[in-house]
Amino acid sequence: MMLVRPRIAALVVLVALSACTTTRVDVAEDININWTTEQKRVLLVEPDVQLGELTAGGTFEPRADWTQSAQRYITREASRIMRGGAIDLVQIDKLEDPREFQLTKLHGAVGQAALVHLFTPGMALPNKTKAMDWTLGPGTNIMRDRYDADYALFMYVRDSYTTAGRAFLMVGAAMFGVGVQGGTQVGYTSLVDLRTGDVIWFNLLTSSGGDLRTAEPAREVVQKLLEGLPL
């Protein structure tokens, strides 16, 4: 973090997808969902979605058109799923308040900690006893109050396509958007209780199938991203 310079091209975990095409793992503590508002409201905070092409040369090239489409589909489908539970999903694309922005940075750090310590074998933190023991702290109440929403959803998706199809997924490297090999899809969603800052649900999706570029397949991906959402 502060003392170590990141090696941009380093990899963490190589996940070979063999028989299965999609993997979803989620973690949650005993969750007690409750609402302080009459209208249930969840913030979708600065969803981080990027789609691109993996060229023959092995470079990842961002595609604005695919990304824009994916963002639209994600927003649409996520809203629809929430509406099914009588929940209003409010998307915030850009937080202006510096402290709120720091909270999203902190969430990124927390997300990374979860990816490493929850989902990477051999990297568990031995001093953590609960399954899901991360928080952003009660500073999140400023968002709770400003947007009058009790929960926030964070979403991170990196997705690349080749003509050759998908082979490998690199979870760690994917977090940096670097050298995502083959056609792969990595996504995670997390749910934060804005009254405590606790990350109460974390869902990691890795897939060699699915397509976020067109409407119907995209809906399926979003459903997987939100599968198990405890709201």
């Binding site: 990899l11 996940v15 070979a16 997808l17 074998p121 051999g122």
Partner: peptide, 17 residues
Amino acid sequence: CFTVLCVTFGLSGCAAY
């Protein structure tokens, strides 16, 4: 569904912490 390889360690199940 998938095998996880700890690439840089060369083995799985390595404990870093």
